[in-house]
Design a protein around this nucleic acid. Structure first.
Length: 345
DNA sequence: CATTCTTA
DNA sequence: TAAGAATGG
């Protein structure tokens, strides 16, 4: 879920094309989860192949990646490793709400309330290991690199921007900023349409970028202080946050007192004693990240035969759609005139 | 979510 | 032809 920093952030809308030629480190879990949750049939069932294996995430990953490549963007997907121990409570609560959603889904389905069923089905979404493996296979066949993070994917993605291997991170969550990402791109989409939660209304959504340096300057605080603000709001590592404190109040408090241990507010001071905020700070400020020597960001040509075999033969995608997409991509590459030399190096 | 089909 | 609805797997 991440930290709700939104009220503190003013993002700049950008055109997708402005990212042409840039390496973007994409939070794989975030992207795949979004695909899995939203790409569903009328009654909420995910797309599946003839063997009943879920393919929603592959559909999203394939078409979006084609579009990013066609726009000249170089995506690098960063996969999660082992979650920090402090994340257990958050993961457990996610597991529980999925369980509850499953019960509601079955009930709604039984009663023919398909719109509800769809909503609850989305909330049951779980990325299984085989789905992650299928996603990695597809990326390899598409010539798109990915990185295995030792722990939080957002942390390694952020690190890639810090060491100059990526221009920005891409995620819907703000946590990569806490991990020090120099730039965060949200809404890295093509269609620019998103359904409002619980409503049958669609709104235009454009990609937006947040520059960490600018954000810190605007807020008038350091990254260390921003992490303290996040802890007050509530992070994946202290999901409760603190009673009555949202983004605005958290910022006020840190601007006034500087850091968590100096907050002099009746009640809150005692609540803070119950939280190991130093451990949380450490996760954000000194995260476990991939070794640069283990990061190979190499783009290759799309293996059209391989992609077709994998998506169409193994997973029952339409040959026509897949070949059209690859044709579009090749045409875009041709028009851009990017020689394979400069592109794939 | 992204693409394709339908509709007016 | 452009917006909205349906479909994809």
């Amino acid at each position: 879920m991440g930290t709700d920093l939104k009220p503190l952030i003013k993002a700049k809308e950008i055109k997708l094309e402005s990212l042409a030629g840039k390496v973007i480190a994409i939070d794989a879990y975030n992207a795949l989860y979004q695909f899995l949750a939203t790409i569903r049939g009328y009654t909420g069932e995910p797309l599946m192949d003839a063997h009943g294996r879920v393919t929603s995430h592959l559909s999203g990953l394939f078409y979006r990646s084609v579009n990013l490549l066609a726009a000249g963007i170089k995506p690098v997907y960063v996969f999660d490793g082992k979650p920090p121990a402090l994340k257990h409570a958050e993961l457990e609560s996610r597991r529980r709400s999925k369980e509850e959603a499953l019960a509601k889904y079955e009930e709604a389905l039984q009663e023919g309330r398909f719109e509800d069923a769809r909503k609850y089905a989305q909330a049951t979404s779980m990325l299984k290991d085989y789905m992650l493996n299928d996603a990695k296979t597809l990326l390899t066949l598409m010539g798109i690199p990915y990185v295995e993070a030792p722990s939080e994917g957002e942390a390694t993605a952020a690190y890639l921007t810090i060491i100059g291997l990526a221009y920005a991170t891409a995620s819907q969550d703000y946590d990569s900023l806490l991990f020090g990402s120099r730039r965060l791109v949200r809404n890295l989409t093509i269609s620019g349409r998103r359904k409002l939660p619980n409503k049958n209304v669609y709104v235009d959504v454009n990609p937006e970028i947040i520059e960490l340096d600018e954000l810190l300057r605007d807020l008038g605080i350091s990254r260390e202080a921003l992490v303290d603000v996040a802890i007050l709001i509530g992070t994946d590592f202290n999901p409760e946050g603190f009673k009555g404190i949202g983004a605005k109040k958290a910022l006020q408090l840190i601007k006034k007192y500087g850091r968590l241990e100096d907050i002099d507010v009746e009640g809150l001071r005692d609540e803070l004693k119950m939280v190991d905020y130093n451990a949380i700070r450490e996760i954000f400020l000194k995260p476990e990240v991939a070794e640069p020597s283990n990061v190979n960001i190499i783009f290759k040509e799309v293996d059209e035969q391989g992609v077709t075999r994998f998506l169409c033969d193994e997973h029952n995608f339409s040959r026509e759609r897949v070949s059209n997409a690859i044709k579009r991509l090749n045409e875009a590459i041709r028009i851009r005139g990017s020689s394979l030399e400069q592109w794939f190096s």
